[in-house]
C-alpha cells in the first residue's frame, strides 16, 4: 500500500529515525496528539503527576501485553488472559490463609498458577496442534470454572498481602512508582530475550514460517510451549499487581484486559500473523491505550462508547498494517 512511499520518505531522514517502523512512529505521534488534545481541554493533562499516574496504570497493562506480544509474535493468540489474570490474583491472595511462609510466597504462587495454565495452553498448541484460539478459550473456561468452584465452596481470603501492595503502589525510588519499575524490568528482559538470545530469534522464525524454523533445527514445539508458559506467567503477574493496586482480588477483574492487551500489541505494529514487531511498538501501544482510556473517562464516555472505540481502533489499525498478502 503506502509502504513504498513511506520507504522513499524515510530515506531522507536521519538513520535513527529510519530504524523506527512506521506503525511505532504513528503510535508515538498519536500519543503526542492525544496529550496536546488533552492539554487544550485542561492543563492538568500535561502535569508530571498526571503523566506518572498514567504510566503507573499503564504498567499493569504493559506486563500483560508483554506476554500477549510473545504469543502473537509466534502467530498465535492467547484468549485465556481474563481468567489467568483473575486466577493469578485470587491464588496469590488466597495463599495468605496458609500461614506466614505462604504469605511471603504469595506473589510466586500467583505467577506459578498462571504458568500452569500457560503450560496447558502450550501443550495443546505445540504438541497437540490445536488452534491456539480454541485451546486458550477452553483453558479460560476451565480457569473460570475452577475459580467459581473455589470461591463458591468456601469463602477464601481475597485481600492482597503487604508485599503485593508494595509492588503495585509503593515507590522504591522516590517519585517513581514501583509498578513502573517492574514494567521496565519486564520490558528490558523481553527486549533482551527477543533480540539477544536464540530463543528470541526462534520466536521470530516460527512466526514467519514454523516449517522453515523446524527444518533449520529449531525445536519449535518446545519454543512455542515455553512462550505460552511465559505468557501465562506474565498475565498472572499482571493480575497479582492489579490485586495489589486494588488491595483485593475479584472474579471479573481480568475481563477488561483481553481486548486492550491485543489492541496494544497490534497498535504497536506487531503483525497479528506473527514474525514481525518490536517491543518499542508494544510500549507505545500500551501508553496509547491507557491515555485514550483515561481521556475518554475524563470526558465521561460510558462503557459502551469505550467498547465501540476499542473495536473501531483495532480494526482500523489492522486494516492499515495487519492485512494478509494477496496470495491470488
Amino acid at each position: 500500500m503506502s509502504d513504498t512511499t513511506m520507504g522513499r520518505l524515510s530515506e531522507r531522514m536521519p538513520r535513527f529515525i529510519r530504524r523506527i517502523e512506521p506503525p511505532v512512529a504513528i503510535s508515538f505521534a498519536c500519543i503526542i496528539l492525544l496529550l496536546l488534545f488533552g492539554g487544550l481541554y485542561s492543563s492538568a493533562f500535561l502535569s508530571a503527576d498526571y503523566l506518572l499516574q498514567q504510566l503507573k496504570v499503564a504498567s499493569f497493562l504493559g506486563v500483560i501485553a508483554t506476554g500477549m506480544m510473545l504469543v502473537i509474535l509466534l502467530g498465535q493468540i492467547d484468549l485465556s488472559v481474563p481468567w489467568v489474570v483473575a486466577a493469578g490474583a485470587m491464588m496469590a491472595c488466597a495463599a495468605t490463609a496458609y500461614g506466614p511462609a505462604a504469605t511471603l510466597a504469595a506473589v510466586p504462587i500467583g505467577i506459578l498458577c498462571g504458568m500452569l495454565i500457560g503450560l496447558i495452553n502450550g501443550i495443546g498448541v505445540a504438541y497437540l496442534r490445536i488452534p491456539s484460539m480454541i485451546v486458550t478459550l477452553a483453558t479460560n473456561a476451565v480457569a473460570q470454572g475452577l475459580m467459581v468452584v473455589y470461591t463458591g465452596g468456601f469463602s477464601p481470603r481475597d485481600f492482597a498481602t503487604e508485599e503485593m501492595r508494595y509492588l503495585a503502589t509503593g515507590s522504591l525510588i522516590p517519585g517513581v512508582p514501583n509498578a513502573l519499575i517492574i514494567w521496565a524490568i519486564v520490558g528490558a528482559g523481553m527486549v533482551f530475550v527477543l533480540t539477544r538470545t536464540t530463543f528470541g530469534r526462534a520466536v521470530y522464525g516460527i512466526g514467519n514460517r514454523e516449517r522453515a524454523a523446524y527444518l533449520s533445527g529449531v525445536n519449535t514445539r518446545r519454543v512455542v510451549m515455553i512462550a505460552f508458559i511465559a505468557a501465562g506467567g506474565l498475565s498472572a503477574f499482571g493480575g497479582v499487581l492489579l490485586a495489589g493496586y486494588a488491595s483485593k482480588a475479584a472474579q471479573g477483574m481480568g475481563d477488561a484486559y483481553l481486548l486492550p492487551a491485543i489492541a496494544a500489541v497490534v497498535l504497536g505494529g506487531t503483525s497479528i500473523l506473527g514474525g514481525r514487531g518490536s517491543y518499542l511498538g508494544t510500549v507505545a501501544g500500551v501508553i496509547l491505550i491507557t491515555l485514550l482510556l483515561s481521556i475518554l473517562s475524563v470526558l465521561q464516555m460510558p462503557e459502551a462508547g469505550r467498547q465501540i472505540i476499542y473495536g473501531v481502533v483495532i480494526i482500523a489499525m489492522l486494516l492499515l498494517y495487519g492485512r494478509s498478502p494477496t496470495n491470488q
Binding site: 481486548l259 459502551a304 462508547g305 465501540i308 476499542y310 480494526i315 489492522l318
Partner: peptide, 26 residues
C-alpha cells in the same frame, strides 16, 4: 472486513464483537 480487508477472522471478529456489544449497551 475478512474478505476485502483481508484480516484474520479471529481479531476482526473480536473487534466487531466489541462494537456490536457496545451498541447493545447503548
Amino acid at each position: 472486513i475478512v474478505i476485502y480487508g483481508r484480516l484474520q477472522p479471529i481479531v476482526a471478529t473480536i473487534g466487531t464483537g466489541a462494537i456490536f456489544f457496545g451498541i447493545a449497551l447503548i
